[in-house]
């Protein structure tokens, strides 16, 4: 008998093993929900599957009586709009700041301490300032994501730039490259897939800021809805919304990973060798 640490599951086994915790959690929920509902049919904490499908029908399939729009789609598009805009601005800003920070000693000497200090400011603590400055509208929510996420990506990119072997910069100089042409031909293309990686890893953080901002001030959005229906203890709406947000987060992670490999085939190959 081999040691347990040396035993490897086959592909099929691995798939079912991976599925198992989901099934167990599902069964656990259904049993717990049934037990509670048997005791008190008006219990709101663990709603039955029937009330879930009713809630999903109400939120996602039937237009709202008040506005004539489907709330679920409205919430999703509002949230994704904010998230996408926030991430996009953060990524562009991070490139503009991170590459010079990692590459030009004078910029690093001048700004590195400031960026390090700024990235320690807890973004949630300055949310009130954002509301005061930008008002309660869209800008404040996007700004929270930008302020929360940009420093993380900047510091990651700065690190990635300084990880490019010095040999490459010297070689490029012996080929006649200037600081600028080395940035656009050597650094930028090598940093781009790392930027996508970095964005992927900070998406989780971006969601936190998005939902927090929506919880405090919004008129639609996934986070807004969850916090709104909390007043009525509508677990039948909250739980599907949470599942949906989780699924979206998973989907973006997966798509970004695929996109990185598709756009930069050399990147994954280099990673395997490293």
């Amino acid at each position: 008998m081999k040691r347990f640490m040396n035993l490897k599951p086959s592909k099929v086994t691995a798939f079912f093993l991976g599925l198992l915790p989901f099934i167990i959690a599902g069964i656990f929920y259904i049993v717990a929900s049934d037990l509670r509902l048997a005791e008190n049919p008006n219990d709101k904490l663990l709603p039955s599957m029937a009330s879930f499908s009713e809630a999903i029908d109400r939120m996602a399939l039937t237009p709202s009586k008040r506005t004539g729009e489907i709330l679920f789609i409205e919430d999703t598009s509002a949230s994704l709009h904010r998230l996408g805009l926030g991430i996009l601005i953060s990524a562009v800003l991070a490139m503009l700041i991170g590459i010079p920070l990692g590459f030009i000693p004078f910029v690093r000497a001048g700004f590195s301490p400031f960026v390090a200090a700024f990235s320690m400011v807890p973004p949630m603590a300055i949310l009130p300032i954002l509301f005061i400055v930008f008002g309660m509208g869209e800008i404040a929510k996007v700004a929270l994501i930008v302020i929360g996420v940009t420093p993380l990506i900047v510091r990651d990119l700065q690190q990635r730039v300084s990880e490019i072997p010095a040999e490459q910069f010297i070689k490029a100089q012996t080929l006649g490259g200037s600081s600028w042409s080395i940035v656009i031909r050597v650094i930028l293309p090598q940093i781009f897939p790392r930027l996508l990686d970095s964005v992927r890893l900070t998406l989780g953080t971006a969601w936190i800021f998005l939902i927090s901002a929506e919880a405090i001030s919004a008129t639609e959005g996934l986070g807004y809805r969850i916090f709104l229906v909390r007043r009525y203890m509508s677990m039948d709406v909250i739980l599907p919304y949470v599942a949906w947000i989780t699924f979206l987060a998973f989907l973006f992670d997966y798509l970004l990973k695929k996109l990185t490999y598709k756009l930069f085939p050399w990147y994954s190959a280099g990673k395997e060798n490293a």
């Binding site: 072997p165 040999e167 490459q168 010297i170 070689k171 490029a172 080929l175 006649g176 490259g177 200037s178 600028w180 042409s181 080395i182 656009i184 031909r185 050597v186 293309p189 090598q190 930069f264 050399w266 990147y267 280099g270």
Partner: peptide, 30 residues
């Protein structure tokens, strides 16, 4: 150098082209 002196994000042809591009095109590097 002993290692790391080629650019991993460019094809073999792209690597050699880059030499001439960096030399001749100062702004675009292309």
């Amino acid at each position: 150098f002993q290692r790391y002196s080629v650019f991993e994000h460019l094809s073999v042809l792209g690597n050699v082209l880059l030499s001439m591009e960096l030399k001749e095109s100062k702004f675009f590097g292309r």
